[in-house]
Simulated scan of single mutants.
Amino acid sequence: MSVSVLVGNPRPGSRTLAAATLVAQRITGAEPDHVIDLAELGAALLGGDDPAVAEARATVQSSSLVVVGSPTFKATYSGLLKLFLDQFHGNTALEGVVALPFMLGGNPAHALAPETTLRPLLSELGAVCALPGLYLLDTAYATDPALGAYAQRWSPVVKRLTDQ
């Protein structure tokens, strides 16, 4: 199983990156194989032929599981993440990839954002979105018991979905 973390926070090395990596660790019991911090790609995301962006796309497409993380901006995912995901063409671009929609935010009122905004985008690209989206507060993600409960409930499902 190849596990990737894809994070669309415009700040490099963000809390969203740390939280999404922790989610991947908890759900799989291991470090992710790949961590893609879109902030590091910066302006390269605006062109269509950057080798680093192409490598990031190929990594996502070849992953068994991708934790797709974003901070919550205006009750939805970041524009940076959208910019990257818009580079996948067709509704089969992520076929066979299990995607876990994950968002970090400052207000519990946005807890449905992964389900109502990020999941439909990933589904449109053909990803397998069998896991419910996960939302954690940015001030308490590392100690939030919801993460442990989520991992305990959904780890066996991830294992079944990604067994090859």
Rank of each mutant, 00 (worst) to 15 (best):
G42S: 06
L125C: 01
V23S: 11
R119G: 14
A111R: 09
L94I: 02
A19R: 09
D138Q: 05
L136W: 03
L147G: 02
S14E: 08
V66K: 00
Y150V: 04
V5N: 03
L118C: 15
Q87D: 12
S4D: 00
A39Q: 04
H89Y: 14
G47M: 10
S123C: 15
E40V: 14
Q87I: 05
H110P: 07
A19E: 04
L147Y: 08
T139Y: 13
V23A: 10
Y77M: 00
L83S: 12
P156T: 02
I27H: 06
A111Q: 11
V67T: 02
G79K: 08
C129F: 06
S2G: 15
M1W: 14
P12L: 15
Q87M: 12
Y77S: 11
Q87L: 14
A56Q: 01
G133V: 08
T28N: 06
T143V: 01
L83P: 02
R153I: 15
G106S: 09
P156D: 14
A44R: 10
L45M: 08
G8W: 03
I36Q: 02
T143R: 15
K159Q: 15
P71I: 04
L22S: 03
T139E: 10
V158Y: 00
T117H: 11
P10G: 13
V60D: 06
K82N: 00
M103I: 06
V3G: 00
M103K: 05
P71A: 13
H34S: 11
T16H: 10
V98Y: 00
L41E: 14
L6K: 02
A58W: 09
